[in-house]
Each structure stands twice: as structure tokens, then as C-alpha cells.
């Protein structure tokens, strides 16, 4: 490591020090901070690494990259989590994004995975979304499920012969694009209507947009409490939200967890109000639906590099 005040010469050190500057949060007026969170002065770092020119100081040149970094991530985050933004409001959403990405910077070559750790992070940081924490977490889970469902693999569904051979001890595989989300309110309907509204609001003026944004936040926060069990899945390249009975939801969840079929059925009906004698018919119709949608499948081997 070179002296902090001299110019670093090793490529790795240059990249580490420059990345630390670029990835630090910008100020509210979108400038590079004078000091990083660990107290390192940004000016000293910029002058150590970057040459000034006749128009811009070292600080200003590095600041261009610092701003670009946050603008790019913010745009991507906003596109992926409009529902969460509606739940917590724009100011809070910006704070969540800043703190989440500072703690969990991207470790993937693709921006697609930027929000992969967001639901867990919101659980670990309830203050960031209080007093709407539960709604915020569930919405983030639904929006991340949507991203996964959009382009996760679709494996070959079980053939009728394979379906007929399923027994009590069978361990079934679910389509990777099928994601299961449980919520305490109808967030699926709310998200669908939000996305429709957003399409309509593209041409709205700034004032109209501000009013729209406040209205949608109010609407989200006042969703009536009603447990919903959602299967997010892909069919013909489109993502759908399908409401499930709680029994079917718990059945699929247990199967995804690796349970044998008999154990999954026990789990599904553990707290069920469906009378014992009606359960075989219920299961038969659920399995027929899952088979039609191709949710039970054969895993495909990955290509080696």
C-alpha cells in the first residue's frame, strides 16, 4: 500500500481506492461527499489518483463517476421495485436504496441481481420501512419473485407417465420460474394496478406525477388486511400472479423444501378447514392444475464451462 498522500502506482490499489470513492453515497444535492463514512477525505483520495485538467479539479472529475454510479443504480432499482417505492414513499425509498446498496453492493455482473438481497435486508432493518415494515417486506418479496419468474429456467414438465408414477415417497421438483409469496394484503392486485397506472402516467406533468405518487402511496398503505397466497409463474413468456388456496400454497412450499409427497400433504392440511372426506378431491384438482401449468418438472443438467 502506498503512502495515502502519494500517487498509488499499483493497479489493484488504484482500483480499490477509486471504487471506494465512486461507490460512496452522494449528498442530497447529488455531489460527492467531502468525507467517506470511514473519515477518509475524498479530496485527498481524488488528488492522489486523478490528474486535474484546465477545467475540472481531480475531485470534480472523480465526482462524475460517483454521480453516474448512483444514477445508474437508482434507475435500475426504481424499475425493479416500484411497489416498494409506493409503499414507503420516494424519500424513504431513496434512503433504503442508498443504505441497502452501501451495505450490499452488487456482486454480480448483471444489474438484474441488484435487489436479490433486498427482502432479507428489509427484514434485518425494520426501521427503514416503519411503520409499514410488513407491507414493505412482502412487496419487495413479490417484486423480487417477479424478476426471478421473468427469466428463471423452464425445465421440461413431467410427462403423463411420470405423473402417473408419482407415489407417497416421491420427491417432486418445481419449475424454477415458479415462486411462492405469502402476504397479509392483496399486494398482487395492488402491484398490477400500479404498473398499469405507471404506464398511463408516463406523459403526466410533474405536478400531476407528484399528486399521483402521493395517491398511490396512500392507496397502498390502506390495503385491507386479507391473507393471500400467490404463485408467481411464467406462461408463454409472460409473468402471472395466481392466487392459491392456503392448502395448495403450503403443499407447494413443502415440495420446494424437499419434502416427500406424503409429508407435503400432511403439511398442507395441518391447519386446514377442509373436511377430511373432501381432501382427496381437493388434491386431485390441485394436481391437475399444477400438471396443466407444467409446474412439476425434470431438472436439466447445467452445461459445464
Amino acid at each position: 500500500m502506498s503512502d495515502q498522500n502519494s500517487h498509488p502506482t499499483q493497479l489493484r490499489e488504484i482500483q480499490q481506492r477509486m471504487a471506494a470513492c465512486i461507490m460512496q453515497p452522494i449528498t442530497r444535492d447529488e455531489r460527492m461527499r467531502q468525507r467517506r463514512a470511514d473519515g477518509t477525505p475524498s479530496l485527498r483520495e481524488a488528488e492522489a489518483i486523478i490528474r486535474p485538467n484546465d477545467r475540472l479539479s481531480s475531485f470534480e472529475r472523480l465526482e462524475i463517476y460517483n454521480r453516474q454510479y448512483w444514477f445508474r443504480l437508482y434507475t435500475s432499482f426504481q424499475e425493479d421495485f416500484p411497489g416498494l417505492q409506493a409503499v414507503v414513499g420516494t424519500r424513504r425509498f431513496e434512503r433504503i436504496m442508498r443504505d441497502y446498496l452501501t451495505e450490499c453492493p452488487s456482486t454480480s455482473f448483471t444489474l438484474r441481481n441488484l435487489g436479490s438481497r433486498l427482502p432479507q435486508w428489509l427484514i434485518a432493518h425494520p426501521d427503514h420501512s416503519a411503520p409499514h415494515t410488513r407491507l414493505a417486506i412482502e412487496m419487495a418479496q413479490l417484486e423480487w419473485a417477479h424478476i426471478e419468474s421473468f427469466d428463471n429456467p423452464a425445465w421440461p414438465p413431467l410427462t403423463p407417465e411420470q405423473m402417473a408414477a408419482i407415489g407417497e415417497d416421491s420427491v417432486l421438483t418445481l419449475q424454477p420460474h415458479l415462486r411462492l409469496v405469502e402476504a397479509h394484503a392483496a399486494i398482487d392486485d395492488a402491484l398490477i394496478s400500479l404498473r398499469e397506472d405507471e404506464g398511463d402516467s408516463d406523459s403526466a406533468s410533474n405536478n400531476a406525477s407528484t399528486g399521483f405518487s402521493a395517491r398511490r402511496t396512500r392507496r397502498m398503505r390502506t390495503l385491507p388486511g386479507k391473507p393471500v397466497f400467490i404463485a408467481v409463474h411464467r406462461f408463454d413468456d409472460s409473468v402471472y400472479y395466481r392466487r392459491l388456496d392456503p392448502e395448495d400454497f403450503h403443499l407447494l412450499k413443502a415440495i420446494r423444501g424437499g419434502a416427500t409427497l406424503s409429508r407435503a400433504i400432511d403439511t398442507a392440511f395441518a391447519a386446514s378447514a377442509i373436511p377430511e372426506q373432501d381432501r382427496p378431491a381437493h388434491l386431485q384438482s390441485a394436481f391437475a392444475l399444477f400438471a396443466t401449468l407444467g409446474w412439476f418438472c425434470n431438472q436439466t443438467a447445467e452445461d459445464p464451462l
Binding site: 488504484i14 480499490q16 471504487a19 461507490m23 443504480l73 453492493p105 452488487s106 456482486t107 455482473f109 444489474l111
Partner: peptide
């Protein structure tokens, strides 16, 4: 260009220092 270090991605096309070490790497 470069854009990641220590497994963290900036998702930007960052300029290189034009050094011989960078050429070889």
C-alpha cells in the same frame, strides 16, 4: 476498461491507468 474490484461491481466502464502493469494484466 475495469469496473469491479474485490468482487464488487460498479456497472460502469471505468478508465484504465495507462501503465505497463495494466497492459500486461
Amino acid at each position: 476498461c475495469w469496473g469491479s474490484v474485490d468482487g464488487r461491481y460498479t456497472h460502469d466502464l471505468l478508465p484504465m491507468p495507462y501503465t505497463w502493469e495494466a497492459v500486461h494484466n
